[in-house]
Nucleic acid binder design. Structure first.
Length: 542
RNA sequence: GCGCCCGUAGCUCAAGUGGAUAGAGCGCCGGACUUCGAAUCCGUAGGUUGCAGGUUCGAGUCCUGCCGGGCGCGCCA
């Protein structure tokens, strides 16, 4: 509907002000009160500067003698807004277009862009916790949304399976292993203390007995633990309906020579130097606050170096847009990765980094921030078992990614029964039920004919909500804000519930019945599409 | 100390590139099931958008300074 108004308005603008260029965007809003019309635009105010005329006067010129059957009334208001009152005929023609498939809900993107989307990428040093779940829900939904709109999306999980943290993990497991044989052990601060470490140690004991007591093998413990944990991660994500096109091991950037290659490029460009026995990158030349180490004085490459190599692969992969989703505790890392990309000659506007604010844990009145190392966390699996996949995903997606989240498992458990997700699913199930009833009453539900004469003022709030669907998707893609989708679905469901309460669908009159069934079907399709994008099921009954 | 994010109704959260009278859910109170599903609907109450300035036709949104909370500031990842 907004598209229609935009079309008609710009046509009108060309007629009234032929001298202006058309390189501006027409924004169609909804006025604060329905008595002020169905839609409005501030275009007259925007154009005031260009035309050097008072906005109110421009608005009046545009509105003057505007004959168009889609509008009951078009008027200038306030400082220069233009309010549109859609006529019943306008709504009828529009909804007929929807039902007959002439109006597009998914306007395909102008050009099919290739997008790389990396998210979760949790180190395999512990099971996924709720914080990761939030990132998983956001990333997965974003991926589904971009795909739905027609982009070519490639999703990836970067497995950080090397380095100091993995060594610590191996040591932690080894200590617990020794403990199982009665040895008294002491864990350092940077060792992992969660129960899962003991679990893995027990597993090794069962399989290999005391084999490693005499002959310790640190790399075996690291490898074994990381692999075991990664298998849990995969399982949890599968359960959470999160899929990746690729699981990319950090080891690949070493094995395939990408790291050394990248290092050479930086060296040749004269962007590295040695100091205190380490190799440094002049990232401060590219906007970072200070230079960073690439190779430590002990000869080990840093995580940063591997990450540069990995991102270089992404930039060379022909992607128009690269999206990374990181936890907010990594925000200080952004300038250096951008610096590295600029240093390698890439346009860093091609990468967008979204930050998920940390999820903190609420326990007995106080909040603790979750930490894999201290073992202080609620696992994603635990939440899924308690609350369910649908309610969890909805819960996570119902807030902006940059808002903080206090997670209280008891509260989540309690709220699961009153989660708005059921409100939306109920609307979907209700519509299924109407169709079942129709069949029961031997009404035809196939090849229904739509009669737009049936549409009255009662349908308009619902039609208006329906007309917002593609705007929500488009703005979600433009601003990378998938959280608008669940909010929209709640509103759509509400309009339907209200309508259902007021208007009977299965009436004797065939024209009315068929048309209303078709309208209900449109709502149901939209709800299903919307739920599908956020990875929530759309049950036929519940 | 410096940097990033946040502060909106009792609670949890919204509010497209600045738009008109800041919206939902939960909770509270009061109504609606002989009818297509009451997991629903209708109604009431609830706010100085942390504070103080500034920018302009117009600010929850942008700028400056405070206050409060979170997170960073490693040759960890």
């Amino acid at each position: 509907m907004r598209e229609q108004i935009r079309k008609r308005l710009s046509h009108r603008l060309r007629g009234v002000f032929p001298e202006i260029s058309t390189d501006f965007q027409i924004k169609i809003d909804e006025p604060p009160d329905s008595s002020m019309g169905d839609f409005s635009t501030n275009i007259a105010i925007v154009l005031a500067g260009k035309l050097k005329q008072p906005p109110r006067q421009i608005a009046e010129k545009i509105v003057e003698k505007w004959g168009d059957t889609w509008f009951e009334k078009v008027e200038a208001a306030g400082p220069g807004f233009i309010n549109f009152f859609i006529s019943l005929d306008g709504w009828r023609e529009w909804v007929a277009g929807i039902i007959e498939g002439k109006e597009d809900f998914f306007a395909p993107p102008a050009k099919k862009r290739k997008i790389h989307l990396e998210f979760v990428s949790a180190n395999p040093t512990g099971p996924l916790h709720v914080g990761h779940g939030r990132g998983a829900a956001l990333g997965d939904t974003l991926g589904r949304l971009l795909k739905k709109i027609g982009y070519d999306v490639f999703t990836e999980y970067y497995i950080n399976d090397g380095g100091r943290q993995i060594d610590n993990l191996g040591e932690s497991v080894y200590l617990r292993y020794k403990e199982l044989f009665g040895e008294k052990v002491e864990l350092r601060n940077d060792h992992y203390k969660g129960d899962y470490v003991i679990e893995i140690a027990k597993e090794i004991k069962e399989k290999y007995g005391d084999k490693f007591l005499e002959k310790p093998d640190p790399s075996f413990f690291s490898r074994y633990a990381a692999e075991r944990i990664l298998s849990w991660i995969r399982k949890d994500l599968e359960l959470f309906r999160v899929r990746f096109d690729s699981w990319f091991s950090e080891r690949r950037v070493y094995d395939e020579g990408i790291v050394s290659d990248t290092l050479n490029i930086l060296r040749e460009k004269g962007l590295t130097y040695e100091k205190d026995g380490a190799l440094w990158f002049k990232s401060s030349n590219f906007g970072d606050e200070k230079d960073r180490v690439l190779i430590r004085s002990n000869g080990d490459p840093t995580y940063f170096l591997a990450d540069i190599a990995y991102h270089r692969l992404k930039f060379e992969g022909g992607y128009d847009l690269i999206i990374d989703i990181w936890g907010a505790d990594h925000h200080g890392y952004e300038p250096r990765i951008r610096a590295a990309m600029k240093a390698l000659g890439f346009d860093d506007r091609r990468i967008r980094i979204l930050f998920i604010q940390l999820v903190s844990l609420k326990k007995g009145g106080e909040t603790i921030s979750m930490s894999t190392r201290t073992g202080e966390f609620v696992t994603l699996k635990e939440v899924l078992e308690e609350v369910g996949v649908d309610a969890s995903r909805f819960f996570f997606l119902l807030r902006r990614n940059d808002s903080h989240l206090d997670f209280d498992l008891d509260l989540a458990r309690k709220q699961s029964s009153e989660n708005p997700v059921y409100y939306v699913q109920y609307a979907h199930a209700r519509i299924s039920s109407i169709f079942q009833q129709a069949v029961k009453k031997r009404y035809s539900v196939k090849n229904l004919k739509f009669d737009m004469g049936v549409i009255s003022r009662k349908e308009i709030p619902l039609l208006k909500k329906i007309s917002e669907f593609n705007e929500i998707l488009e703005s979600g893609v433009r601003d990378l804000t998938p959280h608008r989708i669940p909010f929209y679905l709640v509103e759509l469901a509400r309009q339907f519930h209200q309508y259902y309460n007021e208007v009977r669908v299965l009436v004797e009159d065939e024209k009315e019945r068929s048309s209303r069934l078709l309208l209900a079907k449109v709502v149901q399709d939209l709800i299903r599409e919307g739920l599908d994008i956020i990875g929530v099921s759309a049950p036929e009954k519940m």
